[in-house]
Measured scan of single mutants.
Amino acid sequence: EDYYQILGVPRNASQKEIKKAYYQLAKKYHPDTNKDDPKAKEKFSQLAEAYEVLSDEVKRKQYDA
């Protein structure tokens, strides 16, 4: 799945936009606030993985290549 789609940001998003999108979605899908939703944990880990790659310039360049 596309990391940009997961975070809901365009491919040319700035680091600030990526961070903002991640924090909004992380708050929304955090397992502690969605105890009754088994998919929230999965969504949250996808968000974390996408953010880890896109927030790191080197990893992001490799991902975009």
Rank of each mutant, 00 (worst) to 15 (best):
Y23R: 14
P10M: 07
K39F: 13
Y51E: 01
Q46S: 06
L47C: 07
E49N: 10
Y22C: 02
H30I: 06
E17T: 13
A21C: 05
K39Y: 12
A48R: 15
A48Q: 14
T33I: 12
Q46H: 09
Q15D: 11
K59P: 02
Y23C: 08
E57I: 11
D37F: 03
K16N: 12
I6G: 01
K43A: 08
N12M: 08
E17P: 01
L7Q: 00
Y4P: 00
V9K: 01
L54D: 00
K28R: 10
Q62I: 12
K61D: 06
K20C: 08
D32N: 13
D2P: 03
D32H: 10
L25C: 05
L7H: 01
L25A: 12
G8Q: 11
R60F: 01
K59E: 04
I18C: 02
L54N: 00
A48P: 02
P31G: 08
A21Y: 03
F44G: 04
Y63R: 01
D2K: 04
K41H: 13
V53N: 03
Q15G: 07
Y23E: 15
K59C: 05
Y29I: 05
Q5D: 10
D56H: 04
K43L: 12
Y29Q: 04
N34W: 15
E52G: 13
N34I: 07
N12K: 11
R60Q: 02
K43S: 05
K20Q: 11
E42D: 10
P38T: 11
F44T: 04
K41W: 15
V9F: 01
E49A: 14
Y23H: 13
Q5C: 07
V58F: 12
V53E: 03
T33S: 11
K19G: 07
E1Y: 14
D64C: 03
K20L: 14
A21D: 01
A26N: 07
Q5E: 10
D37S: 04
K16P: 09
P10G: 09
A48C: 10
D37H: 04
Y29M: 09
P38Q: 09
E52W: 05
D64L: 02
A21L: 03
A48S: 13
K20I: 14
R11L: 06
D37N: 08
D2T: 08
Q62A: 14
A50V: 10
K61V: 08
D32M: 08
Y4H: 02
K28A: 13
K20V: 14
A26C: 09
Y51F: 11
S55V: 06
E57V: 12
I6K: 05
Q62R: 06
D37C: 05
V9Q: 02
D36H: 10
K20F: 10
S55I: 07
E1Q: 14
G8H: 10
D2A: 05
N34A: 11
E57C: 07
K39P: 05
D36A: 07
Y63T: 02
S55G: 14
K19I: 14
D56W: 01
Q15T: 14
E49P: 04
D36W: 11
Y3T: 01
K20H: 14
K27F: 11
S45L: 13
L47D: 00
Q62F: 08
Q46C: 06
E49T: 13
R11M: 09
E17G: 05
Y3L: 12
Y63V: 02
N12F: 10
P31I: 05
Q24V: 09
D36G: 11
N12Q: 14
T33H: 13
K20R: 07
K35L: 12
Y63W: 03
A21T: 05
T33R: 08
Y4K: 00
D37W: 03
D2S: 13
Y29E: 02
K35N: 12
A48V: 14
A13S: 09
L54K: 00
E17L: 08
E52K: 09
K41S: 13
E1K: 15
K41V: 10
E42S: 05
D32R: 03
A48G: 13
D64S: 02
P38A: 07
Y22S: 01
V58K: 05
L47N: 02
N12V: 09
D64Y: 02
Q62G: 07
P38H: 07
I18F: 02
I18W: 01
E42P: 04
S55Y: 07
V58G: 08
K19R: 11
Y23N: 14
Y3Q: 01
A65H: 11
L25M: 12
R11H: 11
L54C: 02
K16W: 10
Y29H: 07
S55L: 05
R60W: 01
S14H: 09
Y29K: 04
I18D: 00
E17K: 07
D36K: 05
Y4C: 01
Y51K: 02
Y29N: 05
Y63S: 02
S45F: 12
I18L: 08
H30W: 07
D64F: 02
L7Y: 00
A50S: 04
L54G: 00
E1A: 15
D37T: 03
V53Q: 04
E57G: 06
T33A: 15
K27I: 15
D64K: 01
L54P: 00
P31E: 12
V58N: 14
Q15S: 11
P38L: 10
K20M: 15
Y63N: 02
K35Y: 10
Y3M: 04
K16V: 14
E52F: 09
E1D: 13
V53G: 02
Y4M: 00
A21W: 03
K59R: 12
H30P: 05
D36T: 07
A13D: 00
D2N: 11
E1W: 15
V53D: 01
R60V: 01
V9Y: 00
Y4I: 00
T33V: 13
H30K: 07
I6H: 04
A48F: 14
G8C: 09
A40D: 06
S45K: 14
L47R: 01
K20D: 15
D2W: 04
L7K: 00
I6F: 05
H30F: 09
K19F: 11
K27Q: 11
D56M: 02
Q5H: 12
L47M: 08
E1M: 14
Y23M: 15
Y23K: 14
G8D: 07
G8W: 04
Q15F: 14
Y51T: 01
A40P: 04
P31Q: 10
K59N: 05
Q24A: 14
V58L: 13
E42C: 08
I18M: 03
A50G: 02
Y3V: 03
I18Y: 01
P10Q: 12
A21I: 05
Q5A: 13
V9I: 09
K39C: 10
Q46F: 09
I6T: 08
S55M: 06
K16A: 15
E57A: 10
L47H: 02
L47F: 06
K20E: 13
K27L: 14
K59Y: 05
K39L: 14
K61W: 06
E52N: 11
D32Y: 03
E17V: 13
V9A: 02
R60L: 01
V58I: 11
F44H: 05
F44V: 05
L54Y: 00
K20N: 10
Y29T: 04
L54T: 01
E17R: 15
Y23S: 13
G8M: 08
K61M: 08
K19T: 14
R11P: 05
Q5M: 13
I6V: 12
E42W: 11
K59V: 04
Y3I: 03
K27H: 13
Y23T: 13
Q24D: 14
L7E: 00
L54A: 01
Q46V: 11
K59D: 03
D32Q: 08
N34D: 05
K61P: 04
E42T: 04
P38F: 06
Y63P: 02
I18N: 00
K28C: 08
K43E: 06
R60S: 02
E17Q: 12
D32S: 11
D64Q: 03
N34T: 08
Q24C: 09
A13T: 04
Q46E: 08
A50F: 01
K35S: 13
P31S: 14
V53A: 03
Y3G: 01
L7S: 00
A13Y: 01
Y29W: 11
I6L: 12
K16S: 15
I18S: 00
Y51A: 03
Q5R: 07
L54S: 00
K39Q: 08
Q5K: 15
K35A: 15
K39M: 13
Y4D: 00
K19C: 09
K28E: 10
S14W: 03
A65V: 10
A50W: 01
A21V: 05
Y3D: 00
D56T: 02
A50M: 03
K19V: 15
S55C: 06
P31T: 10
Y51S: 01
K16M: 12
E1L: 13
A40S: 09
P38N: 10
K59M: 05
Q24T: 15
A13V: 05
K19N: 15
P10V: 08
A65S: 12
E1H: 15
Y22H: 04
P10C: 09
Q24Y: 14
Y3H: 05
A50D: 00
A50T: 02
K19P: 01
S55T: 06
Q62P: 02
A40Y: 07
L54V: 03
Y3R: 02
Q62E: 14
K27R: 11
H30G: 07
D36E: 12
K35R: 13
S55R: 08
K28N: 08
P10S: 10
E49G: 08
K28H: 12
K61C: 08
